[in-house]
């Protein structure tokens, strides 16, 4: 009993460490792959670690008008993302934290982070902060229902919204190739692109003010606060990549409930690294092959995700004559 508790806490801590350690690597390798595809040499994949470290050590410059909301937001957003990352399986299933909330709760944690991020954007009272918050509200209000509908479709297949139970169901081979799941996958990928501010919705590398969404919201942050927000953003990408991987391709995850097998754990890690590299490559290929959209075209892009997710649910309802 006690040993099981220690093992599961140890697993959770290991999971946190792996998540924190690999999130910058995911972003770094995406950037690296992208620059190679564009014919540039690009910075090394470990550059994000250096950036974070540099920002952590720097002095924080706060605007005169910054209130307590602006100051707590970096810590809160980081904590919310870390909590979400702690609930999504990456290399092992049956994390103790996964039982405190289901898929809807994970979506809600991300939504709370967005809420505070947007408030911080409005806090200083600059035009750019407000613009970022306003556009982010638009993106969020289309992306969140799409995720909820994806959760609905998946829950219809697996019979629950508890993430470990869904993954277990997929692993058990209880699910074949299904139209509704394919639609849900496409919808979730679109949402992941939008939520993480990737091209074509937003450009994480932009320095042209009028095209920024996320960068405009966090424009006033500097030093340690900025580092935390960047880290949270990296964690968010990791959360979405692991979510997609664990819902649609969970094979190779270490199943901790049947005992703590070291070899299995290593296998899970290997698969996780493979997932990350595949995601980095796919994002990079996608980003070099499309152009950024106008803000109002994003609505159609995300609207498509929403409709696809609703279709996934309806298909499931129509085909399922139990």
């Amino acid at each position: 009993m006690i040993q099981a508790a220690i093992t599961s806490i140890g697993l959770q801590l290991l999971h946190f460490m792996v998540a924190l350690a690999s999130a910058p690597l995911l972003v770094g390798s995406t950037r690296f792959a992208k620059s190679r595809l564009q014919g540039r040499r690009g910075a090394s994949p470990i550059q994000p670690y250096r950036d974070l470290l540099r920002l952590m050590r720097k002095e924080t410059v706060l605007a005169h008008d910054a209130s307590w909301i602006f100051r707590i937001t970096p810590y809160l957003v980081f904590a919310l993302m870390a909590a979400a990352a702690g609930m999504v399986p990456m290399f092992a299933l049956d994390l103790p934290l996964a039982s405190i909330g289901d898929l809807i709760a994970i979506v809600a944690l991300l939504a709370t982070a967005r809420f505070f991020q947007a408030l911080a954007g409005l806090d200083i009272g600059t035009a750019f902060g407000g613009m970022g918050a306003s556009r982010d509200a638009l993106i969020g209000s289309l992306a969140e229902p799409a995720v909820l509908m994806v959760a609905f479709a998946v829950a219809l297949v697996a019979g629950t919204t508890a993430l470990p139970a869904i993954v277990r169901f997929v692993l058990s081979g209880g699910v074949g190739v299904e139209v509704s799941l394919a639609l849900a996958l496409i919808a979730l990928v679109i949402v992941a692109i939008a939520e993480n501010g990737r091209i074509p919705v937003d450009n994480p590398a932009t320095h042209l003010e009028l095209t920024m969404v996320h960068e405009a919201m966090v424009l006033e942050y500097s030093g340690r606060d900025l580092a935390l927000i960047e880290a949270a953003q990296m964690l968010k990408l990791l959360v979405f990549v692991s979510l997609i991987a664990s819902l649609f391709a969970p094979w190779g995850l270490a199943v901790a409930a049947d005992g703590f097998d070291f070899a299995e754990l290593l296998g899970g890690m290997a698969v996780f690294v493979l997932h990350l590299l595949a995601a980095a490559l796919l994002i990079a290929v996608f980003e070099v092959s499309v152009a950024k959209m106008r803000v109002f075209r994003v609505v159609e892009f995300l609207g498509a995700a929403f409709i696809l997710a609703v279709l996934a649910v309806v298909f499931r309802f129509v085909t399922d004559v139990s």
Partner: peptide, 14 residues
């Protein structure tokens, strides 16, 4: 890890 240094200044706003 790194003692925090904090300073108030005018907003950046690009």
């Amino acid at each position: 890890l790194w003692p925090e240094r904090r300073r108030r200044a005018a907003a950046w706003d690009c």
